[in-house]
Simulated assay, not measured.
Amino acid sequence: MAKDDFFVIVFMVLTKVYQANKQGQPVTQEDLDLWGTEYNEGYWNHIILDMLDQGWITGVISVNLLSGKKYKASEVYITPAGVEYLETNSMMHKAKEVLKSLPEWATLIKSLF
């Protein structure tokens, strides 16, 4: 599973939203846009809108434009269903393991060059 895999990205976003919310902070449009800069815009929009459709986040709406569907966000929060998905989904646990191993791979690659 790569770091740009759908489930890894969903895990990362839900975790960041959950952490911000636990600190009393909603996630903003700017936050989501910043987090999505390393991905293809269409793919990123699909991921955010899918999390909305699945009921894992609130504070996002789908906007139909000539160029396709995009999202608009204000005060994004994780839902109880989103927390449950993070805690119980086996793909989320695999994504968590991938993200944990990334620093180890970076160290290994640096040592090779």
Rank of each mutant, 00 (worst) to 15 (best):
L66R: 15
D31R: 02
W44P: 01
L34C: 08
W44M: 05
E104L: 12
A20G: 06
E87C: 06
V10G: 00
M1V: 04
V10Y: 03
D4L: 03
V83I: 13
D31C: 09
V83L: 09
M92G: 03
L86E: 05
N89Y: 05
N45L: 04
T58D: 09
K100N: 07
Q23T: 11
H93M: 10
K3V: 14
K3E: 12
K22H: 11
V60S: 00
F11I: 03
A73D: 07
I57K: 08
V8A: 08
I109C: 00
I78K: 04
V13F: 11
V76A: 06
V17A: 06
Y85D: 02
Y85F: 13
T37S: 12
Q23F: 04
Q29T: 05
Q23E: 15
Q29K: 10
D53I: 02
W56D: 02
A20E: 09
T79N: 04
T15E: 15
E84W: 12
L49V: 01
S74Y: 05
A81H: 12
K110C: 09
E104V: 12
N45G: 03
V98A: 07
V27S: 10
L49I: 01
H46T: 10
V63R: 14
T28G: 03
F113I: 14
L108H: 08
A2L: 13
S90P: 06
Y39G: 02
M51Y: 02
I47N: 01
S67Q: 15
I61A: 09
A106D: 13
Y85M: 05
G36D: 03
F6K: 11
W105I: 13
P80G: 02
D53H: 10
M1L: 12
I61L: 10
P80V: 02
Y43V: 01
K70D: 04
D50T: 15
P80A: 05
Y71P: 00
A81S: 09
E30T: 07
E75A: 12
M1T: 04
V17S: 05
D50Q: 15
D33S: 07
N40K: 10
F11Q: 07
T88I: 11
L14G: 01
I78D: 00
F113E: 15
E97K: 13
F7N: 13
L65K: 15
L112V: 11
M91R: 12
G24Y: 07
P103H: 10
L32P: 00
L102M: 14
V17C: 08
T107A: 14
S74A: 11
E87W: 08
Y18T: 09
A81D: 14
M1I: 03
L32M: 07
L14S: 02
D5W: 04
T58G: 03
E84C: 01
Y43G: 01
M51F: 04
L108G: 05
V98E: 08
K70E: 10
Q23M: 14
E75L: 03
H46M: 10
K22N: 14
L66H: 13
S101T: 05
L108F: 12
W35N: 06
L52H: 05
E87F: 11
P26E: 07
Y18E: 12
